[in-house]
Amino acid sequence: MPELTNRFTSRRGLLFGTAAVSAGALLAGCTSNESDDEPAANDQPAAEDKPGKEVTIGFAGPQADHGWLNAINDNAKSRAKKYSDVTLEITEGSNDTAQQIGQIETLINKKVDVLVVLPADGKALTQVGLKAMRAGIPVVNLDRIFNTPQAYRCWIGGDNYGMGLNAGHYIGEKLKGKANARVIELAGLDNLELTKQRTQGFDDALKNYPNIKKVARQAAEFTVESGQAKMAQLLQAQSKFDALWNHDDDQGVGALRAIEQAGRDDFLMVGGAGALSAFQAIKQDNGVLKATVLYPPTMAASAIDLARALGQGKGVSGMAEFEIPASLTLYSAVVDKDNVDTYMSTGFK
């Protein structure tokens, strides 16, 4: 009996399967996202352009499941391509700690000259960083920092506190002289330490402006969907305010949609991270978005520069030291209408 039904099932399954496959084929043409845009990358000239000793750089990053991480990968790849003396060994990105450890160990076994690591979780990957350093492979730790400085030769990353600080100062200056100014904050994922740091920086900056009061804060989840939902609620809660800081341009797409749907334009908005869509909106200057604070994905290109310099035993040109620094915190520049053209090419999608 079971065998009989099984055979019957598989034939029917085949029929349905065929229907599904053909429906799929019909749709398959629609998955294309081809466009002629260049990937986000930095055109800044590389540190020392004269080819030197051949360097093999191993690169391990997390899964590029959102725009910023995707830009990190693009920046690393395109930078490495610019150097004729650099070979890039890039692993498939993973958010799984165990898998990323395995990938880095493979790179260590391959005896790459230098490692660039953007850990999925900085603390969890400390051990493998230590292992690489002990094996004599210098590690450039990108953005998400390891537990101990012993696990990296050089750390380079963004400044979350500085993002909040600069956003706060920008808004503070814009609202100078306005009595009882009201400011609201659309934060990112509250589970993350970086969100707390951004909010802390923002609050600290606002303390310099006694005329400004932060009246509301809601946390979205770095996604368009959550940005729209939380912003719609914030707009309903606050019938009047003067400025808004949104931590992240990705969720900002949703936030701008909510603002448009509510028909509001009586305030100024500052974004965060530096997405292409945000740069374009700032340049057009016909909406509420007037500026964004950078968390530059070009740091991956700089990490390749540093790794190459390490591999060739050089320092950073333009500095007196013979060695590259142990730690580099990048500046969170404010991009507004005046300087947006400079940064346009670094915008990510």
Partner: peptide
């Protein structure tokens, strides 16, 4: 409906 609401499509939708 979500496309109408958020004006976009993202792989993080429907979390």
């Amino acid at each position: 409906l979500l496309i109408i609401l958020s004006g976009s499509g993202q792989n993080t939708n429907g979390n």
